[in-house]
Design a protein around this nucleic acid. Sequence first.
DNA 1: CGATCCTTGGC
DNA 2: CCAAGGATC
Length: 482
Amino acid sequence: MTHTTSAPTLVWFRDDLRLADNPALAAALAQERPLILLYVLDEATPGLRSLGGAARWWLGRSLAALAADIERAGGSLLLRRGPADEVLRDLVREAGVVSVHWNRRYDAGAIALDRRIKAELTRAGVEVTSHSATLLHEPWTLRTKSGGPYRVFTPFYRAAAPLGPRRIVPRPEALPPGPDLPGDTLAAWHLEPAQPDWAGGLRASWQPGEAGAHEVLRGFLDHGIHGYAERRDRPDSEHTSRLSPFLRFGNLSPVQALAALHHAAEAGEALGRDVEKFRSELYWREFSYHLLFHNPDLATTNVNHRFDSFAWRDDGAFERAWRRGRTGYPIVDAGMRQLWQTGWMHNRVRMIAASFLIKHGLVDWRRGEAWFWDTLVDADPANNPASWQWVAGSGADAAPYFRIFNPMLQGEKFDPDGAYVRRFVPELAELPADVIHQPWRAKPEVLARAGVELGTGYPRPIVEHGAARERALAAYHRSGEE
DNA sequence: CGATCCTTGGC
DNA sequence: CCAAGGATC
């Protein structure tokens, strides 16, 4: 084999930062040519949404891990920055690339860019192949009997699940070296914050990359999955998978997660109900991408256009209090502070916090979506907007608008001992469980004993729940009359 | 087409 | 008890 003398194949990594189960990498390897492994930091192409701060941190860590994994296998990761079409055009010319492989993306900006690059390179005589890697099923393969895309989860799931995912592609044992090409250093991209360094909580919470993904997956299938169906809703317990950021950046594929889940189920390590529940959660991710593919402007436009005339309030003070975790509703504030500290929020609390911004504050869901986009390590172009629209009531298969979460009841139901609130809202740590979700109702001596000074220390509720609820229902009915 | 169903409640 | 209305077969 003459790897070093023949023309190279290029693998362009994007949302698939792993070596195992990577169809583009495997197909490129099978060509037995010198291999260029590329990542492009593209902050210049119009229509591509720039990563938020937390996601940039995750990307930096993932690339460091990927580069190390690649080097251990004998290859090297090339880093270049700029508009991806220009970067690829230059690199192809510079290195005499004859074949390019990548795994597909599904947001409109990326689809348009990839299509343009593919057309240009093909015209130039380069073979370009895209692969399915990031989803269990390609969105265009699922249609209702009447021919349209699914808009309700359950029929989607019933149609998709029996199809079964593609086969897992093995992890390559060795990577051939590629040509020596000039590239950027990761440090020069400044993906991790320096001044100020706000990422301490993220570093303490996560180990991005492929090895970290498998460690979390293993831990989840050994422990968290037991009782998952019931306890996944409890923010005070460790029964969620915490796989979302790994799936977002492709440190792990959903195909790998599903296969590991089935393996655990067959080995009798997990109960059917828990397995089924987690499987359906993987398919919720799938459904979000399906919605994104069929609604390219999911992050900016109401899926249900009845909401286009909704009179959102412009309330900077309310939004700031929400972002900082100072609404005076402990379960909301705990969630918002968990988000800021760790780059992640428990799913149940995401719903409560999102509902609070939208319904108690009447703030446009896009404002909340943008904040989550900037602060979540798992922020992706599908799940984030789809979930915000779900809470707002404007999305597909959405919660009805009149379903307004009661933050006290939700707190008491899902964090009954207050352990989650105590962890993230230390001002309230000494309050007894029976008042921790509504401290304003505690007797003065109880507050004093706990060292809580409402108003000066922990805030009083920014809105009264009952009044806010009535206001939201009235706004909804007004909107419906137009 | 009419029947049935629909992630995540609140009062 | 209340609260719509659309998706799907």
